[in-house]
Computed example of a mutant assay.
Amino acid sequence: MTGPAPAVAAVRRAVRGACADLPAGALVLVACSGGADSLALAAAAGWLAAPGGRGRAAWRAGAVVVDHGLQPGSAQAAERAAAACRDLGLDPVLLEAVDAAGGPGGPEASARRARLDALERAAQRTGAAAVLLGHTRDDQAEQVLLGLARGSGARSLAGMPARRGALRRPLLGLPRTTTRAACAALGLRPWEDPANTDPAFARSRVRAAALPVLEGQLGPGVAEALARTADQLREDAEVLEALAADLLARCRGARPTDGLDAAALAAAPAALRRRALRAAALEAGAARPDLTREHVLALDALVVGWRGQGPVQLPGLVEARRTCGRLRLAPAPPPPGGH
């Protein structure tokens, strides 16, 4: 008796490993678009969670399909993805329609926020212990290249984590060719999202042009190297962020309105201080997508370059000002004559 195709076995191993800590009976939702990555993921989860069979999972598998409504025929594509998940034995299968047309950061960022919100709602509604996303090693490499092009810091260049809250990405260690091969071996017909080849989107240009050029000029293995770089940077970023959180805790006063001890902040290394200041700005309500390095440097100047300058305005209607040796971040007062 022959076993499954190597690609099918690789995807199943990845899913089994990512969910090994889940208790018996827990519900796992697969976020499925119908594309090759998420369809291979759904097939593996459905097989692992099927009743009976030695070595299969004790958890249950369902799916959630998000219709972003950004292109003609998206509702039909979502219905086909939901039907495919049912055919693979996943239950329940939820279909979430979202409005991803507006918001800061452009259509890609807006769609991502809407999708994550929908997945969170689905997990809460069903009591799911985990939501599996189909991002592969190639997606990770694309994320790192986009971060480099934007001049991002270590946290952004660290790419997507394998786990964050209920979200899990079992396929980050596998190339996209493996998920396509798994679908072919199982006789599954993935949906090809037109957005993946639309040059209007930066990620599509990276996928279709930038990475192939790098592979052609530097040799094979660029995507794997970029993903490996992300893993290493993530380890460093997690340590630095933990140290920055400790620094913030030491600088806080007894009451939230006391603000932060500017002298204690100034004594810290710049990398920790600036991470702490960014975290403090976000805690105060600054808008994450619009909070830039320039904003953080302006906050830093209130700490190490204090010359009596006025308050710093942050996105999200947050204001930072230094008074009596302390840095205070709070909602900005309304403009004169405002309501």
Results as ranks from 00 to 15, higher is better:
20 A>G: 02
72 P>K: 15
329 L>A: 09
283 E>L: 11
330 A>Y: 07
140 Q>Y: 02
295 H>F: 04
57 A>Q: 01
13 R>K: 07
142 E>F: 07
37 D>H: 05
139 D>L: 09
34 G>C: 13
129 A>P: 04
325 G>F: 08
175 P>E: 11
270 A>K: 12
294 E>W: 09
149 A>W: 10
252 R>V: 05
289 P>Y: 11
197 T>M: 01
56 R>F: 10
160 M>T: 15
232 Q>E: 13
93 V>P: 03
117 D>F: 04
111 A>K: 03
336 P>K: 10
206 V>F: 00
189 R>K: 09
228 R>L: 06
119 L>T: 00
127 G>C: 13
326 R>P: 00
3 G>L: 08
292 T>G: 07
279 A>P: 02
303 V>I: 15
202 A>T: 14
273 R>M: 11
161 P>I: 15
312 V>P: 01
95 L>W: 04
183 C>G: 10
124 Q>W: 05
55 G>W: 11
264 A>H: 02
132 L>T: 13
70 L>D: 06
64 V>E: 01
11 V>W: 01
225 A>Q: 14
111 A>P: 01
160 M>F: 05
168 R>T: 06
232 Q>A: 14
97 A>M: 10
147 G>F: 06
1 M>C: 12
328 R>G: 04
329 L>G: 04
82 A>N: 04
3 G>V: 14
254 A>F: 06
295 H>G: 05
320 A>Y: 03
266 A>E: 03
335 P>C: 13
174 L>Q: 01
251 C>Y: 03
206 V>Q: 02
133 L>N: 02
147 G>R: 08
45 A>M: 09
269 P>L: 12
289 P>L: 12
102 G>F: 05
133 L>A: 08
299 L>K: 03
312 V>H: 02
79 E>W: 03
77 A>Y: 04
227 A>G: 12
74 S>H: 07
260 L>Y: 06
189 R>A: 15
184 A>M: 04
311 P>C: 00
219 G>W: 06
158 A>V: 07
320 A>Q: 04
291 L>P: 00
201 F>M: 04
68 H>F: 00
289 P>M: 09
93 V>S: 02
339 H>E: 13
259 G>D: 10
186 L>G: 05
319 E>M: 15
201 F>K: 06
16 R>Y: 10
166 A>K: 09
149 A>Y: 04
331 P>I: 14
225 A>M: 09
130 A>W: 01
309 Q>W: 07
65 V>T: 11
213 V>H: 11
249 A>G: 00
148 L>P: 00
104 P>N: 12
248 L>G: 03
101 A>H: 14
182 A>P: 03
146 L>N: 01
55 G>T: 15
177 T>C: 10
